[in-house]
Design a protein around this nucleic acid. Sequence first.
DNA 1: TTGATTGATATTGTATACAATACTCACCTG
DNA 2: CAGGTGAGTATTGTATACAATATCAATCAA
Lengths: 223, 223
Amino acid sequence: MTRSKGVIVQSERLRDQIYKLIRDDLRTGALAPGERLVEVSLAKKLGVSRTPVREALFQLASDGLLAESSRGYMLPVHTTEEIRDRLEIRRLLEPEILRRACEEASSRQIKSLLKALEEEKKYIDAADASKFIGANANFRLVLLSLCKNPLLTRCAELYDDQFQCFRIWGLNEPRGRELAVGSHEKICNAIKDRKPAAAVKALQQLLDRVEQMLEQYRDSVAS
Amino acid sequence: MTRSKGVIVQSERLRDQIYKLIRDDLRTGALAPGERLVEVSLAKKLGVSRTPVREALFQLASDGLLAESSRGYMLPVHTTEEIRDRLEIRRLLEPEILRRACEEASSRQIKSLLKALEEEKKYIDAADASKFIGANANFRLVLLSLCKNPLLTRCAELYDDQFQCFRIWGLNEPRGRELAVGSHEKICNAIKDRKPAAAVKALQQLLDRVEQMLEQYRDSVAS
DNA sequence: TTGATTGATATTGTATACAATACTCACCTG
DNA sequence: CAGGTGAGTATTGTATACAATATCAATCAA
């Protein structure tokens, strides 16, 4: 697993840097579901002591981004039921974010959203799936940040990231990527035109499709 | 600031016990807004080392329940804007919880909800405000747990608890307590009768009133 | 008196040491 | 050969030691 390429500096708290590093790795799929995260190994690799690593892992776990096993933390492998629970929360939070985005987003922000979309399109057929997954993660970050309630943004990011194990499965298929890009395009246009209803509709269609895919996911995991 | 009466045992992880202990203290208002939480003092009082205390405080802070200052953590004193942001999230999550509660709550759960309401009523005129605040906190815990999506419950609890500094201000006034109990009564009845629309309506009225009170809060804090 | 300076202190951030626990796997026994 | 048993090991949980930094107070100069 290639990962954690970021540099550790002394000026910022180590635990915060490590937290961001690992969270980025989770977003971009650099870590495989089921993989274990061991304090000493990470500490060694990053050239720090166990303490800040430990605290970062702890926070990630309490954010629901890592699972606790009898011995340490690992990448979560959620049941479909758990994924559905997360999806339900996304259904509550994200429509409101889009509504507010339509009202509040500056033209500058919209521009960067469109740019993120282009980036995503660029990699839709990339041989290296991680390219697309990274662009996809970035698009979602930009999208959720369009709302001026920072807490709401942070909360939505969390549940969005908790999806990752399922999302990566979906984005490995071309169909999944097309769904993502198509939906994102609709949402972008709606926000650009300041049409909240259209944005919300596109999002809900996306989430409905995602929920359908959950069935196939269950079967594929069961096999 | 009487607090942290709970007993620390060895069988469970210390940091988890400490987390719960402090979080309970926050819920019941045993800690005053602006009060500092110092690692060594807490560790000494609880008879443990700094490490687990440190980790518990860290998690509380990342949950948004404690504020970071230049030196350690303190009870947050939110601006009205920050409180409004939290209120917005509650408006998104809690109606859905009530809807699901109307469908999913067992008669046993409803019974315990009614009991929690009675407890709250009992202390509405108590000289010791903390009695009422404790009962109020308990009622809300029971209410939010009626929904069968544990993640949603946990998330809602978090934003509910992040309200505490404002809520305690409101519940010190008899008017605030009457509002709380009156609303809770309506919600209870609606859930008992399995009427989601009525439950949501009562909740929304409550939250509207709370938002109005925010104005007065701003003035009282400014003075 | 007021403001700056500096030394002491309080407190956190990180590293390390030690204790406890859960897992692994080889070995033994039936 | 199956299954249990125990020693060894990997890994976390907690305590403590040390380093860095921000705060506070006292002192002194203007």
